[in-house]
Amino acid sequence: MSRPIDLCFGGEQRVIAAYWVDGMVIDPGPASCVERLLAQLPGEPTAVLLTHIHLDHAGACGTLCSLFPELRVYVHERGAPHLVDPTRLLASAERLYGPGLGLLFGRVEPVPEARIVALKGGERVGRFDVDYAPGHAWHHVVYHDRLTGTAYVGDVAGVRIPPDEHVVAPTPPPEIDLERWFETLDQLAAREPAALALTHFGVVEAPEVGDHLARVRASLAELAELAQRCTREAFQRVLQERLRRVLRPETLVRLEKAAPLDHLYLGLERYWRKRAEVKESRP
């Protein structure tokens, strides 16, 4: 049984979804939404499967481990140390969100190291095949359900807030890599999933899967070009104007909670700056 759970992040519906699949919780969301998550779980979870460790996906893990002593947490090996000691993760997030970080995401508890199962990609976890899926983050994975064909994609397949169909690629710092992200999308498409389970937000089902992945590609290319030629302020202004033309006002509010527009710029600005630095360092 697969069940989406709307965590009502920030008091808004259709911003962050967790997924329950046969006793496993995929991306349980932030610690600020734990009570909402627990109220909707149909049973005691046996495992948490993380696509990546960003707080809107993984912040609740430590709290869940304290509540469920047998719980195991599956995460890519690059992300595992930051669950055990979230100091650097929280410092990075505070640079983005400022002093309101705790109010927004709640208290992030460490995950006991003995509870963590580190992944590389290529494993099987119950009914899931695990693919390494960098681009949005170097520690991102995708879980493919062999029984239903659904791919639980975290952030690599973009943000789409229903009922609108417009897709935005979330590009926060510090680990955006466009080339690897496009490769991940190729890998995902080659799997021919029957459905994409998005954290932000909901399930995209066939025959819309191919079109949705094309929209992610188009958004990545558009945002990358815009960030390369614009200041931060101009990027936000131009992008918001574009989004206002294609989204309902209430959808735009939810999208900006899932993917703040200034964060999109900062991740891409860092990507372009690092590329330029590498180019300049070459003889």
Results as ranks from 00 to 15, higher is better:
Y74W: 11
L261S: 00
P42T: 06
L101A: 03
F68W: 13
L213H: 02
R237C: 03
H200K: 10
R115M: 11
F68M: 09
Y271F: 15
A47F: 08
L243H: 04
D155P: 10
E70G: 13
A93S: 15
V246A: 03
L101Y: 05
Y132D: 07
T63P: 01
R95N: 13
D155E: 14
D129K: 14
L96V: 12
G149R: 04
F9Q: 05
A169Q: 09
V25S: 01
L38P: 09
W138M: 07
L188H: 03
S32Y: 12
L239K: 09
H140T: 15
V141K: 02
L198R: 00
P81M: 03
L41H: 11
S32P: 12
R282C: 14
D145R: 14
R215W: 02
S92I: 07
D27M: 02
Y97Q: 10
S2I: 13
G202T: 06
L220Y: 07
S281V: 04
S2G: 10
V25G: 01
P174D: 13
T171E: 05
G98E: 03
D211A: 15
P69T: 06
V15R: 10
S219K: 02
G98F: 03
A18G: 03
V125A: 03
T87A: 14
S32H: 13
G202P: 06
A194T: 12
I16T: 11
C8A: 14
G43E: 14
A197D: 02
W181R: 04
V204H: 02
R124E: 15
F105E: 08
V204N: 00
R245F: 06
P163T: 05
E208L: 06
V168K: 00
D186C: 11
L89A: 14
H136G: 08
F201E: 01
G158L: 00
L239E: 04
T63M: 13
A224M: 01
L96S: 13
Q240K: 14
P99V: 02
P134E: 01
V34Y: 08
P162L: 09
V125Y: 01
S2Y: 11
P134I: 08
V156F: 02
H140R: 12
A114K: 13
A118W: 00
E123F: 12
D186M: 09
A189Y: 02
